[in-house]
């Protein structure tokens, strides 16, 4: 089957005039000679909100790490606002799938969120009143202001996810990369997170969110990307999620039930792959 990269997104008339936030050209990333991302070329307009969908081992996390400038590329190049990452000065927030932090570390939730502002605070300086205010505001927006002085280790999974999202708000990022933010969180947290994304869209922040929830991608994101080591489709969600393209992305793990698509991921043989990436980090 041919690769299908769809024309520019549905709200193209507004986005097309925006310069690209990130451009990938022939990007290949490999771990120990196993290519995880293969020849990905794409351009994400500033202010776009993209759901990144693909099976386990599709390279979603790898794509995000590459976009955050955290891993070297085997081939190809990435430009942020037309420049290298250092030169562009783009503020990037990256929320990994599972933050590999030491949950026993003696820090309060407030301290963790404040870390997002270390760049603004600068070397040898103490946080200003503005930094403190931005921290509290971010916590309030995620509905966890009451947890500000709790140790990070005492939070539930959903609350931790909120805290790390609050941190990227405090960071005042221009590009937000959230890897599976909805995995393992409760329904109310999911709604809060979606509301925050909505708010970021209004502020013109570029947001990429990986998810394995097709319905969420279709219903809550205007733009979607299908990824399975190669870029399979990128464009308006309603055009991306055709049964052919989805089946191509997920191989044979897709079933049609009541006219909708269901993906069976429990037996994914690529699962080992994903673990392999985590070991590399």
């Amino acid at each position: 089957m041919q690769l299908k990269v769809l024309p520019s997104p549905a709200h193209a008339h507004t986005l097309d005039t925006n310069p690209p936030m990130v451009e990938l050209r022939d990007v290949t990333v490999a771990y120990a000679d196993n290519a995880v991302l293969n020849d990905v070329t794409l351009s994400i307009p500033q202010g776009a909100h993209v759901a990144v969908v693909g099976p386990n081992g599709a390279g979603k996390s790898t794509l995000f790490k590459a976009l955050a400038g955290l891993i070297p590329l085997q081939q190809g190049s990435i430009l942020w606002r037309g420049k290298s990452l250092g030169a562009s000065g783009v503020r990037i927030a990256y929320i990994p799938q599972r933050c590999e932090v030491d949950w026993e570390f003696p820090v309060l939730v407030r301290d963790v969120v404040l870390m997002g502002r270390y760049r603004q605070i600068g070397w040898l300086h103490r946080p200003s009143a503005r930094d403190q205010a931005a921290t509290m505001e971010a916590l309030a927006q995620l509905g966890i202001a009451n947890l500000a002085t709790s140790p990070i280790g005492e939070l539930s999974g959903g609350q931790q996810q909120r805290a790390f999202l609050a941190r990227s708000l405090a960071q005042e990022a221009e590009l937000l990369l959230a890897d599976e933010p909805f995995t393992g969180v409760d329904a109310s947290t999911q709604e809060v997170i979606l509301r925050v994304f909505e708010d970021l869209r209004e502020r013109g922040v570029t947001v990429l969110v990986s998810t394995h929830d097709l319905n969420m991608a279709i219903n809550r994101f205007t733009t979607s990307m299908l990824l399975n080591q190669r870029l399979i489709a990128f464009g308006p969600s309603e055009e991306v999620f055709t049964s052919d393209l989805v089946r191509h992305t997920f191989d044979s793990q897709v079933y049609e039930v009541d006219g909708g698509l269901v993906i069976d991921q429990c037996c994914s043989h690529d699962g080992e792959f994903d673990n392999a990436h985590e070991l590399q980090d």
Binding site: A68, G69, L70, A93, Y94, C99, V101, V112, G116
Partner: peptide, 13 residues
């Protein structure tokens, strides 16, 4: 920051 979250340290360059 480097002790608690090296990934954020790297993202903040």
């Amino acid at each position: 920051l480097v002790a608690f979250d090296p990934v954020l340290a790297a993202t903040l360059r």
